[in-house]
């Protein structure tokens, strides 16, 4: 009995056995589908080139961005103690974009790593403003919280649009918010490994975020330095946002949909659920990208668009479902 209640629910292992093959299948499909034809049976020089320079980088970029964005969404939900937030509904992404825009204007020659760091700092500042706004606005209902974030993001977005419009940079700005993986080549995506590393760090410190998600009083009672964890978590979220903005552009709603599904499935004990968030984030992105490539073959629909349709529909469904449960 005592052993039984402590052991994790029985179906955990089989689920992994189901999830891993699905993920690998998607990974393989993503490598194989493309305009340029691959001859796998007699892998020639050219096929190898396509694989290594274009296909593999693209697939890896999808996986890395998918998992890190999903994890960033999960962390943000724990820290803001709200299910409806993710970096693109808290102003974090917009602030990262503002940072990137300014650095592009003022120091265009800066290496991409430096640009990413500056975008991270802006994103962190934005996240902190969002948290301060939450504290300042009394009576925040569940739905108010993301609305505050979206409004804040809207204000920052307006500033970005103003600057970009005057300087004819609207096109690049549009790319930052709407993830596009079609132009990914070797040498253009490697920064995303930083995002994956940050997701791993989040996993290693997962218990802190689970405790922080219980709220300030519980966390402090358990000896956690709540403010520090908040800052640490927001820093991870901000850097992940910045890394993706700089490389591929973010995929809106990904960080919202995936953690919510996983939470419904297995709860919010992050040490258990975070790996699922990561793998489901990656799998979903791979699937949407494959879909985007096949729907109008040989043309592509950007993944941000494919996922935006699926994601926003799901977001509305969640809003309705949860608010129904509350009243």
């Amino acid at each position: 009995m005592s052993v039984n209640t402590l052991s994790l629910p029985k179906r955990r292992l089989p689920l992994w056995w189901l999830a891993l093959p699905v993920f690998l299948l998607l990974f393989a499909l993503s490598l194989l589908i493309g305009v340029a034809e691959l001859h796998l049976t007699q892998l020639g020089e050219r096929d190898l080139q396509i694989l290594l320079i274009s296909r593999l980088p693209r697939t890896l970029a999808l996986v890395l961005a998918g998992m890190s964005l999903a994890v960033a969404g999960l962390l943000m939900q724990m820290l803001a103690r709200n299910r409806f937030v993710e970096p693109s509904t808290t102003g974090t992404v917009e602030c990262a974009m503002l940072g990137l825009l300014l650095v592009t204007l003022l120091a265009p020659a800066m290496p991409v790593m430096g640009k990413m760091l500056i975008a991270s700092v802006f994103a962190l500042a934005g996240s902190l403003v969002f948290m301060a706004l939450l504290r300042a606005v009394p009576l925040h209902s569940t739905v108010m919280v993301p609305l505050i974030g979206i409004m804040f993001g809207g204000v920052v977005g307006a500033v970005i649009a103003f600057i970009a419009y005057r300087l004819n940079l609207m096109q690049s700005v549009a790319n930052w918010t709407n993830g596009d993986f079609s132009a990914i080549l070797r040498g253009r995506y490697e920064l995303l490994w930083i995002g994956a590393a940050l997701a791993v760090i989040a996993y290693l410190t997962a218990d802190r975020f689970t405790v922080a998600g219980m709220g300030r009083d519980f966390a402090t009672n358990l000896g956690l330095n709540y403010r520090w964890v908040l800052l640490f978590g927001l820093a991870i979220v901000s850097m992940i946002s910045a890394v993706t903005v700089v490389t591929t552009g973010v995929i809106p709603f990904l960080g919202l949909v995936v953690p919510n599904v996983v939470s419904l499935m297995m709860g919010d004990h992050l040490r258990r659920s975070l790996p699922w968030v990561a793998i489901m984030g990656a799998a979903l992105v791979l699937a949407c990208d494959i879909l985007g490539r096949l729907l109008r073959y040989p043309y592509e629909i950007p993944i941000g668009t494919v996922f935006g349709v699926i994601g926003s529909a799901f977001f509305i469904y969640l809003l309705l479902r949860r608010s129904e449960g509350r009243s």
């Binding site: 299910r83 218990d207 689970t210 998600g213 709860g267 919010d268 004990h269 040490r271």
Partner: peptide, 24 residues
């Protein structure tokens, strides 16, 4: 007044009472 908005199992919540000793 206590409100935990995340989804935790009872056993996990109680186990977190040991956090000051075992850090999870």
């Amino acid at each position: 007044e206590n409100q935990i908005s995340t989804r935790l199992r009872v056993i996990d919540l109680v186990t977190f009472g040991r956090y000051p000793y075992c850090k999870g």
